[in-house]
Design a protein around this nucleic acid. Sequence first.
DNA 1: CCAAAAGTGTTCCGTCTACACCCATGG
DNA 2: CCATGGGTGTAGACGGAACACTTTTGG
Lengths: 225, 225
Amino acid sequence: MTDYYIEHPKIFVSVDCIVFGFEENKLKLLIGKRKMDPGRGEWSLYGGFVRQNESLTDAAKRVLYELTGLNDIYMQQVRAFGDVNRDPGERVISVAYCALINVQDYDDRLLDKYGVEWVEMNHLPKLYSDHNQMVDSAVKLLRLHVSSKPLSFNLLPELFTLTQLQKVYEGILGQEIDKRNFRKRVKMMDFIEKTDAIDKVTSKRGAALYRFNEKAYLEDPTFKL
Amino acid sequence: MTDYYIEHPKIFVSVDCIVFGFEENKLKLLIGKRKMDPGRGEWSLYGGFVRQNESLTDAAKRVLYELTGLNDIYMQQVRAFGDVNRDPGERVISVAYCALINVQDYDDRLLDKYGVEWVEMNHLPKLYSDHNQMVDSAVKLLRLHVSSKPLSFNLLPELFTLTQLQKVYEGILGQEIDKRNFRKRVKMMDFIEKTDAIDKVTSKRGAALYRFNEKAYLEDPTFKL
DNA sequence: CCAAAAGTGTTCCGTCTACACCCATGG
DNA sequence: CCATGGGTGTAGACGGAACACTTTTGG
């Protein structure tokens, strides 16, 4: 270990995860009440401190794994938040990460274990520190990319109906979409494949289940929804 | 000072500035040879460590002011870079900031003082650490926003010709643009105002000089180029 | 007089939007 | 038999892309 930068200050660095899920045709966020001081009892994103021998992405993956028991989650950095007094405890710089998870894969017992809940995006409470800002930035980022990149499938199970897919878009974009136009665009993308399976849960008639074929997408990565 | 987080590690945090300028109808970057170890003599972005009582944006502004003598520069965070071994010296997390400056405002004497140069984007050398990645991310970010937000004017003097404006876009987007279509779009935006002034430097015939009227823009912030 | 940059409209094509009715089934 | 969500096509508007010639003037 060398001492090149010995004269400079070191700072606490944390990661905070904005975990999106899709349930009951609604976009939801996984948040909980803080179990430590400062801010004990306030609604908060789930986060953790970055370790000395851990990259930012590894830290985010670790925190996300702690919280969800899941690996290989879709995750993207939002940005760093660095106001001096953003954290009421001490000076902490935090890097926000946005994650999209399939609620089906999530083990509900973890809700209790970590004291977290799925809360509808439309009914978010005031969060600890600058976490509301982080959520806003994450939503902006999602909106920016969701129509041109195949992110949305991360929020859905392997097989999904077109109505579900549409609701994901409506949830993220915060506006309703015309059903026929939406389906027309889906049809253009061959990598969104209709399967033989049929979902009878949400409709009496039954809805065709679709699948996102990643290999096919990679051959012609043209995405527009 | 409390000790809430005493058990967690602290980490060096720096900011690195990707400084874009526009000169000779080319998009350029302000980079220099490192004057310290490790990496002495390598091409590098200009950066600095974040101080204990300084926000990330303040740090970026300070570093940018050191380098340019300018305040009120357009600046945007790109993202945080946090690989464990990204810096060959010690573990340093760096937050990249992208800045757009008007080269006219820049005092050339600073080039020598800080040992930096304006280098054409198309001829960037290999840079220190992960700085090339930072530049790539910054360019992507610029491309994403430049057509829907009035960023480009930060690269130009108060008065500019439409050809200059077009060259800025071509430089950022990395492709040629049709002159008539471009001017048609400019005409739609009333806040890009034609002035009585005429530029006779770059053409014999003379080109009309335009100005970006920020107040008018804020009244109807519809931007599309 | 000629080289060099400024300036100017129209047509075509493709894309996006708006819009309403029938179908299948479980209860 | 009816309530519920699934599924389908067309026409018109709009916006983006392609495209070439005239003007001015300094040297």
